[in-house]
Design a protein around this nucleic acid. Structure first.
Lengths: 147, 147
DNA sequence: TATAAACACTACTGAATAAGTAGAGTTTAT
DNA sequence: ATAAACTCTACTTATTCAGTAGTGTTTATA
């Protein structure tokens, strides 16, 4: 399961990507997305430190997207908040950790199976950009209206 | 990430599936798979309660597979120990829980994205049966030897 | 029928993490 | 000067994970 922090981050980002030039107040995002304000504060700060968001302090300030919504994908956001995407540490790259349950990692079919799942998941997450998610929401809304 | 409990369970099952008619002692599985004995005890008991394993008490007893290794897959084992496979509660069936970050779940592109990932993961996990994993390990070993 | 070998069960523990909250500090426009 | 914003540190509280301890029950067999 994703942490709530990560899920909140994704929703906040998708919200901001609807208006990529706009500056957003923590308070407003918090209300629109139903995310506890104080918690969101920490989340946006993390995203800023990661270079995804920029901010301006003081009156008239706020948060804004620093990068193109077409170039921010969910794999990146998930890794930022929750670390490894793989289900087992022996099937990760950056967070690799050996396990002791198999005698030879190289021929371990369990690891092999979870590597496949990891790769498929990473591909899907990478294909979900903020831009893509905004457009997808528009498509889903249009389709629903039609019915 | 999978819990260690779940990963241990999978390794124990794959080990047992190499000899589907055999009876295994907790102690032996524990040693071969490097799983803490007391912890493994609880795991095998869970698998027994779930109908995957059977057991015989007393001297000469042990655990054995109750079901055909071709019909036990990883989706089932993961669900048994770790619950939902999806990354977000609004993209699960059995463990469904609404979230408050989107105004309409039906048109939420974040949920949509994680539903796709869940479905892909479930398909892959279902295709990994104990029998398949044992055979895969044989293939990987043969391939390594050849090199 | 005693006994050793196995599984079965209950209860506890210690460490880590998640999900926030509190409160003070800093920057900036007006 | 002041109010509006973001920034930062430190706490809290509950839950879960990973495992351990200790006892109980069943069964083959000498």
């Amino acid at each position: 399961m994703l942490s709530k922090k990560c899920k909140y981050a994704i929703h906040a980002l998708v919200h901001m990507a609807k208006d990529p030039e706009e500056k957003f107040l923590i308070k407003d995002i918090s209300e629109v997305c139903n995310i506890p304000k104080k918690f969101l504060e920490a989340i946006l700060l993390d995203l800023k430190r990661a270079g995804v968001l920029g901010s301006k302090q003081g009156k008239g300030g706020g948060y804004f997207l620093r990068r193109n919504p077409a170039e921010v994908n969910l794999a990146e956001v998930v890794r930022l908040f929750d670390g490894a995407i793989a289900a087992v540490p022996c099937a990760t790259y950056k967070y690799y950790e050996a396990c002791n349950e198999c005698e030879d990692e190289e021929t371990c079919s369990v690891r092999h199976a979870f590597l496949n799942i990891r790769n498929a998941t990473v591909e899907l997450l990478k294909s979900d950009t903020l831009e893509g998610l905004v457009k997808q929401e528009e498509r889903l809304k249009a389709r629903k209206k039609k019915k």
